[in-house]
Each structure stands twice: as structure tokens, then as C-alpha cells.
């Protein structure tokens, strides 16, 4: 048992519906497991709630957007007022209303880049290899089935115990996933 632990990623259970997955998530969390993750072919907010997931991506995007706004406005102001003041039709050098459009565009650009790059990076992607891809059953996670994995890295992890908890949730399949 002990010598196997390092090569084991976790125990995976397969379900036929989102409701069963949510139920199983609650039961596994109640059993005290922390390193648990669910996998589904469509976004299921209930599962995230059941597992207690939260994300700070939106605050990150806000910071990205503010950076864009300051960059856009600052760049135009610095260029038009300090670096090369140019008299255009007698307008003041600091003609801020004409800087609004580019400031807005830069805000959107920076926020969107932060949203996508942030989402990918926080999710740890790109990740060409993941132990779960060793499971043939897991191919169905992007089609029509729902999966729950108790990871071996969980401090409470015990193979027999984990299998027992997952089996009690009436899955279609329980299997060990090697590293």
C-alpha cells in the first residue's frame, strides 16, 4: 500500500448525471476530503459551490482594466503635453476629451487580455499532460459523463477508504488513476 502511493494520482468515479455528481461532491466533502475535483462536459455552478471553489479572477481583470485606462490616458497626456506639445487649431495641449476614446479602447483591450490570459494561467494551462488523461474512461468527460476524483495528495487519503466513499455514491465506475 505504502509503496504504491507516489505513483497514484487519485481515485476516479464516473456518473451519468449532473445531479448525481453534485450529490457525490457533497458526500465526499462531508467525509472530510479536501483535494477533490469534479469534471463535467458543461459548466455546472452547483458543483463549484458544493466543492467550495472561489476565484479572484474578476478582481484581477479589474486591475488589468485600470492599468489599461491609466496607460491609455497617461500615454496620450504625456505625449501631447510633455514630450511634444503640438498646437492643433488652437486647442489646449491637455485636450482631455479627445483622449477618451483611446483610453476606453485601451481599458477594454487590457481587461480582455487579462481575462483570457488570467483564466488560462490560473487554470494552469496549457498543460499537455495530466494524469487523468491516463484514464480511458475520462475521454467521456468532454462528451456526456460526469467525473469526481479524490486525489492521492489529500492528507486524509487512503486508497481503500477513498474507494469505499466513492462506491457509496453509486457511480457507474470507480477506478485508480496512475501518475
Amino acid at each position: 500500500m505504502h509503496h504504491e502511493t507516489p505513483t497514484l494520482y487519485g481515485v476516479l468515479a464516473e456518473f451519468g448525471s449532473a445531479d448525481e455528481l453534485v450529490e457525490a461532491c457533497k458526500r465526499v466533502k462531508a467525509a472530510g476530503y479536501e483535494k477533490v475535483e469534479a469534471y463535467s462536459p458543461l459548466p455546472l455552478p452547483e458543483v463549484g459551490h458544493a466543492l467550495g471553489h472561489t476565484t479572484k479572477l474578476s478582481s484581477l481583470i479589474f486591475c488589468g482594466g485600470m492599468t489599461g485606462a491609466l496607460t491609455g490616458f497617461g500615454m496620450q497626456t504625456w505625449i501631447s503635453v510633455i514630450d511634444y506639445p503640438l498646437n492643433v487649431g488652437g486647442r489646449p495641449f491637455f485636450s482631455w476629451p479627445s483622449f477618451i476614446v483611446i483610453t476606453f479602447e485601451m481599458t477594454v483591450l487590457f481587461s480582455a487580455l487579462t481575462a483570457v490570459i488570467g483564466m488560462i494561467a490560473l487554470n494552469g494551462l496549457p498543460q499537455p499532460y495530466h494524469p487523468l488523461f491516463n484514464s480511458a474512461a475520462f475521454e467521456r468527460a468532454s462528451r456526456n459523463r460526469f467525473f469526481l476524483c479524490i486525489e492521492a495528495a489529500d492528507p486524509r487519503f487512503d486508497l481503500a477508504e477513498a474507494k469505499k466513499v466513492l462506491a457509496s455514491t453509486q457511480p457507474l465506475l470507480v477506478e485508480e488513476v496512475p501518475h
Partner: peptide
């Protein structure tokens, strides 16, 4: 990119997608 439909990934994905929609509108 190695997407595997993890609940945590979907959570961030939905936030990013919704905010992108909110940004694209204006």
C-alpha cells in the same frame, strides 16, 4: 491547451467569458 473540464476551471472560465461579453458590448 489540456482543458479537462474541471469544476475550478469552469468557474474561472465562466467569469472570463461573462466579463468578455460585458466588455465586448460597449
Amino acid at each position: 491547451l489540456g482543458w479537462r473540464g474541471a469544476a475550478k476551471h469552469w468557474e474561472r472560465y465562466e467569469v472570463a467569458y461573462l466579463i468578455l461579453a460585458g466588455l465586448s458590448t460597449p
